[in-house]
Every structure is written in C-alpha cells, then in structure tokens.
Design a protein around this nucleic acid. Sequence first.
RNA 1: GCCACCCUAGCUCAAUGGCAGAGCAGACGCUUCGUAAGCGCCAGGUUAUCGGUUCAAGUCCGAUGGGUGGCUCCA
Length: 620
Amino acid sequence: MGSRSPRYRSRSAGQPELGWNRASFDSRPNGAGVSCSWWMEELEMASDNLERVRHSLGHVMAEAVLSLFPEAKFGIGPDIDTGFYYDFDLPRALTPEDLAEVEKRMRAILKEGRRFQRSEIPRDDALRQFADQPYKLELIHDLPEDEAISTYAQGRFVDLCRGPHVESTKEIDARAFKLLSIAGAYWRGDEKRPMLQRIYGTAWETKDELDAYLKRLEEIERRDHRRLGRELDIFSVDPDIGAGLILWHPNGATIRQEIERFWVDEHRKRGYQLVYTPHIASERIYEISGHLETYADGMYAPMDIDGQPYRAKPMNCPGHVRIFQSHTRSYRDLPIRLAELGTVYRYERSGTLHGMLRVRGFTQDDSHIFCRPDQLVAEVNGVLDLTFFMMDTFGYTYKAYLATRPEKYIGTDEQWEFATEALRQVLEDRGMEYEVDEGGGVFYAPKIDIKLYDAVGRDWQGPTCQVDLNEPERFDITYAGDDGQEHRVIMVHRTVLGSMERFIGGLIEHYAGAFPVWLAPTQVAVIPIADRHVEYAKTVADGLLQASLRVRMDDSGDRMNAKIRKAQLERIPYMLVVGDREAEAGAVAVRLRSGEDLGAMPVAEFEEMALKAVREKAQV
RNA sequence: GCCACCCUAGCUCAAUGGCAGAGCAGACGCUUCGUAAGCGCCAGGUUAUCGGUUCAAGUCCGAUGGGUGGCUCCA
C-alpha cells in the first residue's frame, strides 16, 4: 500500500469508549452468557440532559479543584461519551488521595443546590475577568471578534463556557458520578505545549446506571488480552527481546496457524496468489515508493550492507509492486491479486505500545490488486465479499464507512472522482448501509473502512480497502492494453484482519479467551476419574488425535473435580470424563465448557460432533 | 517521546528505615475419587538493573530498563 497506513482509532486509547450495557455478565471465565450490544442504542439515547449533567459536573469539579489549589489554572473541561474531564495546570502532581478529596468536595457543592447562571459579557470584561487564567485568555483570543462571550457562574465560581448547563446542581444525582483517573494531557493536544493534568470522571442519570457502567469496566478488564494472554499462555513480551515485539507461545501459535490457514484457503479460492517478500530492503526501493519522504518517522534507522543502506520493511507494497513489474503485463493478465502475510517493522513511540494491539513488529494480511479501470468495481466487490465472509466467521458485526478526499492530497480531481465513485457504487449496489466520512481518506487514497463491533459492543478499526493513487504513479506501473499502448494500472490495497497481532489480541477479548472449537489451542481434555481409567483415557485421546483433534489427557494425581476446574480455566471446549461406565461401554461423558453435561456417548459419536464443530467453525 | 504512577517467588499480593512472608501454580508423597479447588511435605528471592544517602535500604534519593493510565501517533 501507499505511504500511510489506514487510520486506526485505537479502542485501547483514551477512556474506553463504552456505553452502558444492560446485558448481565457471567463472571465465570468462559464468559458464557455475555450477550451482545445494546450499548450503541444506549449511547444514542444519552439525552441532552445527561450531557448537561456531565458538563456541569466538570464545572463543579473545577471549583472543587480550585478550593484545593487556589493557584490552579484551568484548561478545558468538556463532556465525553461516558462522563467528563477537565484539564488543570497545578503546582504539584495529583495523587489518588487528591481524587477522593476532590470528589468529596464536589458532593458538598452539589448538596448546596447551586444555580448555574449564564452571563454574556463584552470581550474586554472577559479578558479582565480571566486575567490570571492564561489558558482561558488564549481561548478568548481565539474566539471570533463578533461572537458573544459567555460565562457560567455557580455561586462564587465563574467559568468561561459556551454551555449549556443544568439549571441547578440539584438536578445532578450525587451518587451517579465517580472520578476515575488522572492523566497527562498536552494543552490543546499539542506536544510542544505545556502538559496539564487531566481528571476523568464518569457520570450517569442514576446510580444504577453508574453501577452498570462500572461493572462493564470490570468485565472489560477481565477480558483484557494481556491478562488472558498470560493466563492462557498465548503470548508474552520480553524486555530482553524488546518492547513491542511479540513472542507467540504454542497456544498462540496454534490459534494463529488456524487463522492463517483459513485466510490462505479463502484467498486461494478467490483467485489471490500468495507471495513472500524479504524483511529488509535497500533504501532505494523506499526512495522510489516515497516512504523515505513521507514515512521516515515510522522506519528504523538504516543498516549498512556492503556500503549500501538497507531498512527493515515497514510496508509490503513495494515488494508486491516489483513482483508485478517483473514481467510486462497484458490487459489479459489482469486482475492480478498478490497477497502476503507480510511481517513489517515500524517505530512506535514507547508510550503507545500496548500488548498485542500496538507493537513494533507485526504481520499484516496484506494484498495488492492490480487491475484495469473497468475491473475496479468488481474487484472492490470481491474484497467486500471476502471481508464480510471472514468477519461473519469470527462473529463480528460491522459498519461501513466511505472515506473521501482529505484537504491535503495528491493526484488529480479526476482520479479521486473515479476512485471514490467506484467505492460508492459498490456500497450502493450491495444495498449496504454506510456512512460517508467526509475528508477521512488518506492523502493518496479514498477508502472503505469497516468498523467492527465485538461481543461487548466495543468498536475496532477493522478491514480497509483503498484505491491507491500514489504508487502506480511513483512506480510507473503499467499494462499493455488491447490498443497496444501502455496504460496506468489501478492498484487496490486492502487488509481484512489488519495484523495477526492486533486481530488476535482483539479476538482474545471478543471471545473472552473462550475460542470457538476450530481455534481453541486445546480442543478436548480427556479426564480419567481414577488412575485405573488412564489406559482407556489414553486410547480415547490417541483416537481423537489421529482424527486431527487437539487433545490433552490429564493423568495428574488430581481429583476429577480439580481436573475439570483446570480445563474450565483453560476454556477447553470439550471435557471427556471417563470412568468405569465409559470404559465398559467404549463411551465418553461429554461436558461442555458452558457447564452443560451432554451425558455419555460413543467415542465415534463425539468425534463426529467435534469434527463438525471444527469444520463449521461453530461459535460455541 | 511527554505527564503521573508502578516494578518483591511463575501468578496475585504482604512486610514503621531494623531477621523477606502468604495464597495459588510447581516438585514429591498419601488419597483413587462421577462434573469448578482432597491432604501433607518440599523447593522457590542478588526485592527489575546500576549507583547514592544511612550504623542499617524492599522501604529514602538519582539514573537506566520495563509496565500501567492518558496525551500525541497508528495495523
């Protein structure tokens, strides 16, 4: 693909973008019983009133902080999806104890039943009134000359603010908010400017809603892929290997191999050709591609090979382009779809690294489709077919966005028009609901982005499909048309999973560690009740192993109950308990990780059932 | 990278500046058990690393590495 990767909105960044969810959560580790997302609706229903409550609480918090720190300087304090925050410049760092004290003072203020009073004041008065508040002064200076400047007063405390607010603090349920965390935040998001201290709070209409939200945060913590990754022995990160570099343990490697196998099969079926490209390349290729110009910050320093600078590969596209260009291509050859599970290395600032979700080396499921203009619509359609098929398989729901030309862009208006319309046509023809993300494209490409919603209703940046307007020019990629002339190739970049690291990290949370049978590192645990059953258990396990099931037989000295508990904690889909009765009958007693007891059945019957679940990639 | 905080056994956590401990996991022994933890015993540590203050540092100070929550940025 081109010089910039698709925009990703990290769900791990910022306060979790979560709404309140009615679904009750099962605290057991298999995560059974978590139902899907009402939360989006809940968010949309979040009334104007709730926004006013949240914003008003921001002011109340500001007053509480001021009473604690008379020298406090104020930044901004808006309401957000789940509450509010306010940025302060304070003489010292805040501690968790301060948070408790601020919260206490807020409750006292709420109790007083303050009225919020709006005033519109002349600019000069505003400048005078906030003379000792440099950040507020800056905000005032940036307001248009003709715009009225308004302030809100709640008793003695006055803040520059557009509003609106509740009438009185009596409208706020003092039990329905909570201060959550302290974080650094640059003034106006600019890292060259001072770093302020931000206090995040969450606020709801009622205490029940607050409790539901806090419970939801706990559920999300239980699903955290870093925690489950360690507990389920899926991956680790070792400081001596390096931050942001993932070690895939056998369990993680099994999951990854199954997904990669699935991915390879589906791509072959759909006419993709698989390729491999090297992990390092001469700098020359990145001069041609333009990455050295536009992506240098994301690339590692050059290494010297025989006096020539080489770089770790940050993108797969140049290699794919060169494979395409290794022959002259005729219009009859197109489309050519090159795909690679291509490992790339990109510099990420240390503070942004996060488990498997944000790393410095990762494997993209990358593909570049080289086609003629008249093939573009069909190709994009094919990409979406594949995309939705795979996302359905993993049980994600999704929403499509058409991202159009941004302010800064390269290429001609005609190119943008052509490419954007092709994408739009595909979405229209499919009768899909989609939103237009005006100006949300990358500088070299319009694109279709798919946002995924997981089992607890969180959104993730998912598949993306871009019509690259940069590299065909830079590399001068052409084919011979039926007129014997050279024509410019259309190049589609697309990824379905994104990267194996991020996708599987997300899957861990989506499934809460309880992978469907086809992905489960161990699919079957055979549990002999007493030592005399071990021999029979071995026979059963061997048989299933020969049938290509991933089986483990537990011949430890533990009691059956303990063996079951261990298997449960590992989220093993099937537990086969074998005792005298089963050995006698050539049967196994099947327990599912949901706790359901299917009773005894012949081994052959179980084998068939399990293989069917694998084959169908059943969501159990 | 920046701000704040954190780093004690594989994991989760104790220990006023004064003898480094527990539970789980692990090894071993006993128990042979019918759907989520049987009992006992043993082992496990240069308290992330390096340096400093102190009679004495897990504890106080500094640096480095790593992590957490954010900011910024992204697959």
